[in-house]
Computed example of a mutant assay.
Amino acid sequence: MSFSLPDPDQILQPLPRSGASAAQTAPRRSLGGSRHLWWNEARLSGRDGTAAEVRDDAHHGAGFARISAARADLVGLSLNQPRIMGILNVTPDSFSDGGRHNLPEAALARAQEMLRDAEILDIGGESTRPGAAEVPVAEEIARTAPVIAALRAAGITAPISIDTRKAAVAEAALQAGANIINDVSAMRFDPDMAALAAQSGAPIVLMHSVATPETMQKHAHYDDVLWAVRDHLFQRVEAALSAGIRPENLILDPGIGFGKTTAHDLQLLRDLGSFHEFGLPLLLGASRKKFIGAITGAATASERVSGSVAVALQGAASGVQILRVHDTRETRQALSIWQAIQGNYHEE
Rank of each mutant, 00 (worst) to 15 (best):
M1R: 11
M1Q: 11
P6I: 05
P14F: 02
S18E: 13
A20D: 10
S30W: 06
E41V: 11
E41A: 14
L44I: 08
G46V: 02
R47F: 10
D48H: 12
A52W: 09
E53V: 15
D56E: 03
A65Q: 00
A65G: 01
S68C: 02
S68R: 11
A70Y: 10
A70Q: 14
A70E: 05
L79N: 06
P82N: 10
R83W: 05
L88I: 10
T91V: 07
T91Q: 06
G99E: 07
H101L: 08
N102P: 00
L108V: 08
A111W: 06
A111H: 00
M114Q: 05
A118H: 04
I120M: 03
L121W: 03
L121H: 06
D122Q: 09
G124P: 05
S127E: 02
T128F: 07
G131R: 08
A133W: 03
E134V: 15
E134W: 07
V137P: 04
E140K: 07
I141L: 03
I148K: 00
R152E: 05
I156Y: 02
S161T: 05
S161H: 06
I162F: 04
I162T: 04
D163M: 01
E171C: 06
A173C: 02
Q175I: 13
G177H: 04
I180T: 07
D183V: 12
D183K: 14
V184I: 15
M187D: 10
D190S: 11
L196Q: 11
A197P: 01
S209P: 00
T212V: 14
T212H: 08
P213Y: 14
E214K: 15
H219V: 10
D223C: 08
D223H: 09
D224K: 10
W227G: 02
V229L: 02
Q235H: 15
A240R: 13
A240E: 00
G244Y: 03
P247C: 09
G255L: 12
G257L: 11
G257F: 04
F258V: 13
T261Q: 12
T261L: 12
D265N: 15
L268N: 04
L269F: 03
D271L: 14
L272M: 14
E277L: 09
F278W: 03
P281H: 02
L284G: 00
L284Q: 06
G285D: 07
G285A: 11
K290G: 13
K290L: 14
A301F: 05
R304E: 07
A310S: 10
V311P: 04
G315A: 13
A316W: 01
Q321I: 13
R324F: 04
R324E: 00
R324C: 01
R329Y: 05
R329V: 14
T331V: 12
R332E: 08
L335T: 01
S336L: 07
Q339W: 05
Q339K: 15
